[in-house]
Structure formats: structure tokens, C-alpha cells
């Protein structure tokens, strides 16, 4: 049981200082190494209980978090909303208080409404990790994207990233605008005005409607998923027109520098925002993002629940307890 009434949370990229982000990325290196071991499991979170509470369907994020928690030897409880009392009208608050009464250390929350992880953090003593809320934030996605870029370029400082597509409805875009600019990258949004937030003054970014004007001069082409429902809201005339103007085709990909990374948070709409062959290019790092996602989430869980404690504002010179990430195999 968590005894602190001030359990640390990860709700938004906004809450992280640049130093905290750098620490998490450095720690991720360690867990990438752990993930490559023959037995990719360490005892760091033995005895800790982590609940994944997904009010909105998600396969990859949920699997990624649960894999991360298991590799850290935490006990994982999975709360599937479709088979739960939430469908019988139980409130989010009652749900979290019920789960907490069983004794948990962290809850990983996904919800279709912006702000729910923040609300939950006020109703529980467990650590709350935002696994995506509405259009708002998806901080571990931003961390894994930053980690992926960093692993190719060494740093994000001075790099130029184009975020292409439906920024307005995207928690991935909001998190990444903050993550990338915080780490010193330049961000340009590429979208029709209907798919941009009403104003971007909260972020230090620029915007253009002309994808072809940016392709030759970027280090990362970050594509967002385009949902078909957007047509019904008169945000784009048709998927055909969207693909023609904003889709990353082989023809457009040829304008990218050879080292420009092609990234996508998944799931992809092949043929809409990305042509099928583009996803297979050597500089498309989409599955690498998924691989890094597990290690990033291990780092986040370790920081919040393990002996890392860095998000609790412990002195920055405290080093990680190396014993906690010794190989499981050594002990058995």
C-alpha cells in the first residue's frame, strides 16, 4: 500500500521539467538493455500492484504498459471496462475508490474524456499514469517518441520535426509539441486549419498547410492517424482530398533526406495518411517506437514506484539502486 498522500503522478508532459525528461530517457537506456536480455525481467517492483484501467479501448498501449509492469515483476491487475460495473452506471470515482481499497500502488488510466486522469489523481493515493485522455495528453507516447528520435540523432536539440495531420483531436500531438520543444527541437505543424487547434499560442510551434514545402528540410516526419469521422464534421471534404494533400506517398517520401525518420503512433491507416510502402522504408521507425515504448514505460513505472523516486523531486545526484535492475536470471 502506498502510504504517502502525495504519490507522484504522470499526467501531462507539462508537469515534467527538462531534467526529469532527460533522466527518464537515460533510464530508458537501461531498460532497453534489460529488454534485450534472454530473460527480460528484473525484480524492481516485486510486491507492487499496478492496475490498468482502460475506459477506452486500446490494444497496443495497454499491452505495452502491462508488459512493462510484468518485466519489472509488479503484479498487474487488468480492469476491462466492457465487463465491469462501469457499464452498470458506477462512477469513475467509485470505481477508483473500490480498486484502491484492494491495495494498489499505481493506476494506468485511459479515458476518452480529457482530464479524467487528473480528476482520478484527486481521489486516490496511488500514482496515476495517464495512458491517454481525450484530445489532451499521452505523455508516455511522447517519451517513447523522444527516446526514438534521440536514439537516432543523439539529441533533439536543434532538430526539426513536422507533425502532420489531425493535430486538433490528437493527444499525441499535444504531448509531442510540448515534449519536442522542451528538448530543444523545432516543431512545424502540417494540417488544414480545420484540423489545427483554434489557436496554437500555447506552444512554441509554427504551422503550414503545404506539406511539400517542409519535406526537404526536416529530421522527422511524424504522421498522425486520420479518422474517418472527421469528414462527417465538415473538417475535410473527403479522405481522397486529405490523402492527396497531406498523405505521405512514396513520391513525397522521396523528397525527404535519407536520414529523415518517418514516425507514426499507430494504428496506421495505410493508404490515407501513409502509403503502404512508405511504412516499409528503412527510415520508417514505427515498430522501433513500439519496442521503445515498453522500455519507456518500465522507466516511468520504476521512477514512480521503484527506488528511483526521481519524480518525487529527490536530489538529482541520487543514483539508481543498481541491485534493483540486476538480472532476474542471476538470482534464480
Amino acid at each position: 500500500m502506498t502510504t504517502s498522500t502525495h504519490a507522484p503522478h504522470l499526467l501531462s508532459v507539462t508537469d515534467l521539467t527538462r531534467d526529469q525528461i532527460e533522466e527518464l530517457l537515460t533510464l530508458t537506456d537501461t531498460f532497453v538493455e534489460v529488454s534485450r536480455r534472454p530473460i527480460p525481467k528484473v525484480p524492481s517492483l516485486r510486491g507492487k500492484t499496478v492496475v490498468s484501467l482502460f475506459f477506452e479501448d486500446s490494444t497496443r498501449t495497454r499491452l505495452s504498459f502491462e508488459t512493462a509492469a510484468k518485466r519489472l515483476s509488479a503484479d498487474v491487475m487488468s480492469f476491462a471496462v466492457s465487463s465491469s460495473s462501469v457499464n452498470k452506471g458506477e462512477s469513475v470515482r467509485d470505481t477508483i475508490e473500490t480498486i484502491e481499497a484492494m491495495g494498489i500502488d499505481a493506476v494506468i488510466v485511459r479515458h476518452r474524456s480529457s482530464g479524467v486522469p487528473k480528476q482520478i489523481s484527486q481521489w486516490t493515493n496511488a500514482s496515476v499514469i495517464n495512458a491517454g485522455d481525450g484530445w489532451h495528453q499521452h505523455p508516455t507516447q511522447a517519451l517513447l517518441d523522444a527516446y526514438t528520435i534521440r536514439s537516432h540523432f543523439g539529441s533533439l536539440e536543434g532538430r526539426r520535426v513536422a507533425i502532420i495531420g489531425d493535430v486538433k483531436h490528437s493527444r499525441v500531438a499535444r504531448s509531442n509539441m510540448e515534449m519536442f520543444t522542451s528538448l530543444g527541437a523545432e516543431v512545424v505543424l502540417v494540417a488544414p486549419r480545420t484540423l489545427l487547434p483554434v489557436t496554437t499560442e500555447s506552444w512554441n510551434v509554427t504551422a503550414t498547410q503545404d506539406i511539400d514545402s517542409v519535406l526537404g528540410d526536416i529530421d522527422v516526419a511524424y504522421l498522425l492517424r486520420m479518422q474517418r469521422e472527421r469528414m462527417d464534421e465538415a473538417l475535410v471534404p473527403s479522405m481522397r482530398e486529405y490523402s492527396a494533400d497531406y498523405g505521405l506517398t512514396m513520391e513525397r517520401a522521396a523528397k525527404l533526406r535519407p536520414d529523415t525518420l518517418i514516425m507514426h503512433p499507430g494504428p496506421m491507416n495505410r493508404g490515407i495518411e501513409i502509403e503502404s510502402e512508405v511504412a516499409q522504408l528503412p527510415n520508417a521507425v514505427i515498430t522501433e517506437q513500439v519496442f521503445n515504448g515498453v522500455a519507456v514505460r518500465m522507466a516511468v513505472l520504476f521512477m514512480l514506484l521503484g527506488s528511483g523516486l526521481h519524480l518525487r523531486n529527490r536530489a538529482p545526484d541520487d543514483s539508481i539502486d543498481k541491485e534493483m535492475i540486476e538480472m532476474e536470471g542471476d538470482q534464480s
Binding site: D133, G134, W135, Q137, V198, T199
Partner: peptide
């Protein structure tokens, strides 16, 4: 309200 705050919070705003 639709504006900088709604854009930042990711909440649908009305102008």
C-alpha cells in the same frame, strides 16, 4: 469557451 485554454486542455470549445 473556445480559445487558448480549450486548445491547451484538449476540450471542445464554443466560440
Amino acid at each position: 469557451h473556445e480559445g487558448e485554454v480549450s486548445a491547451r486542455l484538449g476540450l471542445p470549445g464554443q466560440p
